[in-house]
Design a protein around this nucleic acid. Structure first.
Length: 210
DNA sequence: TCGTGGATGTTCT
DNA sequence: GAACATCCACGAC
């Protein structure tokens, strides 16, 4: 399967659930870094109060959402960067925010990029993950995944099965519009320590994998 | 270990 | 000039 097929043809909610447990990697020079996706959120386009494309809002900054499925949408907030992938056909501005990975590959390099912050602090949040990869600009915004140093493994034989995938409201969305703020559009591996805001008492020794 | 508050820069009104 | 799809240090337990 190719990226444009994977990121279209199904609802964004379904795609988000299906991306949990798949390897995400980023290669810089000869160094590959990454791990298993343990947390992601769906943003459902013009109707979604929490989406950057709410109400059809379109600008240079959020152009990526309007591109076809499989296009990288990078977004900067303050000094932090977020990694999103557009879903659906062009002009249907939906997407997925990858929020956290369980690190597996290139951990040494990610530790350096994170200035020594190890353990769960290495990648348990969207901006931490990007910092671990060493990304400090929007260079890869609007590129297709296909033609980028980012890889999401689509072969399901490499997808790590979770014991349970939990749905919850999205993190950090404005509560003034309850209807959309409360929708369970965040997906994560139950008990995985690298999920953002996961309480230590809820960690599982198997990290939530089967 | 957990919850809170301040720092931070760009975009859009 | 407000509004943020956050992070981390710090203080209370």
């Amino acid at each position: 399967m190719d990226y444009s097929t994977f990121f279209t043809n199904r609802s964004t909610t379904e795609i988000t659930a299906d991306i949990i447990g798949r390897p995400l990697t980023y290669t810089a020079g000869s160094q590959t870094m990454g791990g298993y996706i343990v947390e992601a959120e769906a943003y459902l386009g013009k109707e979604d109060r929490a989406a950057h494309s709410y109400g059809g809002h379109r600008s240079l900054a959020n152009e990526g959402l309007y591109r076809s499925g499989g296009t990288i949408y990078l977004y900067a907030q303050r000094q932090y960067f977020f990694f999103n992938v557009a879903t659906q056909a062009g002009n249907e501005p939906q997407g997925i925010l990858i929020r956290a990975i369980e690190p597996v590959w290139g951990i040494e390099q990610m530790l350096v990029n994170r200035h020594g912050k190890g353990g769960v602090l290495l990648t348990n949040g969207p901006a931490k993950m990007m910092q671990a990869f060493g990304i400090h600009d929007l260079s890869w915004n609007l590129h297709s995944l296909q033609a980028s140093p980012f890889t999401i493994e689509l072969d399901s034989s490499h997808q790590r099965p979770a014991r349970q995938i939990v749905r919850s409201p999205r993190i950090g969305v404005n509560q003034s519009e309850r209807e959309w703020a409360d929708k369970p559009l965040r997906f994560y591996v139950a008990g995985n320590p690298y999920v953002s805001r996961m309480k230590k008492r809820n960690w599982r020794t198997d990290h939530g994998w089967q």
